[in-house]
Amino acid sequence: MAQPVTLDARARDKDTLLTTKRESLWQDALRRLIRNRAAVIGGVIILILYLTAIFADKIAPYPYEKQTLVDQNKVPAWMLKVFPTMQPYAKISDKYLLGADYVGRDLFSRIVYGTRVSLTVALIGPLISLFIGVIYGSISGYFGGRLDNIMMRIVDVLYAFPGLLFIILLMAFFRSTFARPEPGTFTYTVSQLDARLGGMLFIFIGIGLTAWETMARLTRGQVLSMREKEFIEAARTIGATDLRIMFRHILPNIVGPLVVAETLAIPGYITTEAFLSFIGLGVNPPTPSWGSMISEGAQVIRTYPNQTIFPALALAITMFAFNFLGDGLRDALDPRLRGTQ
């Protein structure tokens, strides 16, 4: 099959007049992205969400852990119009925008703070999997041959694990290994860090450790196709080291598709966090996460639907945003990218 020479490859060719073409490719992509209204809206929402996460303490009317036991399960008056079934038993208080939860904490504030966990998962999960996956995949793809074969078989084996199950085992392992170590040791530092993060660290590591395999495969495929390109040959002939070729010449050219693939995988990370919360392996209380709020709220869905609907709504909006941005990025940036495999 005739593979059209990629524009990137030509861009590297100093003899052609296409030197500026690379810039215009990105500009073109950006223009196309901006034309895609859904993607723009998605991007704006994500921006707003990150701002919310950063300024959570300014936005939220109450601290997320502030309990007022007597106010538990109270709802604002307008909620009865939305959920009339609550009429016979609901206690009214307009102090809380979306109502209060089972120990009288402001739902809205907790959703605002919950942005932090979900968006950190959305940031760190991909970073870990990118970091491991790209290094692994490029080594495998670049050196090829026997090494490639062995490395890819390892990925295949890891891939054969049920991801969530592996996370559960890993989390149980981490949480117990780092339970109460002696101060001053490495494990102590790690467990302190985890405690500081409300138990998020191990969630990130767990998710990252199970998600990099896809990334490694993708990277390897990209590197393989890039390896044979003229400009790489050229770099090699002028004596560039492997490391330099990899980092200076190959990686910048394949980063686009990788980022797109990660963006599309982000909703998966967020739902994984929600699932872990459901089975009780989520963040430590009282740190709020949408996942834990949804799984707790789901228990009262008949009695107090507001306690699960609103965090779910926040999650849905985030997922929409990431999905649309991801799709938009893909459409704009790399029309050749196929799936996640």
Partner: peptide
């Protein structure tokens, strides 16, 4: 501070 562990652990 609150901490939780899986049952058997």
């Amino acid at each position: 501070k609150l901490a939780n562990q899986e049952w058997k652990v």
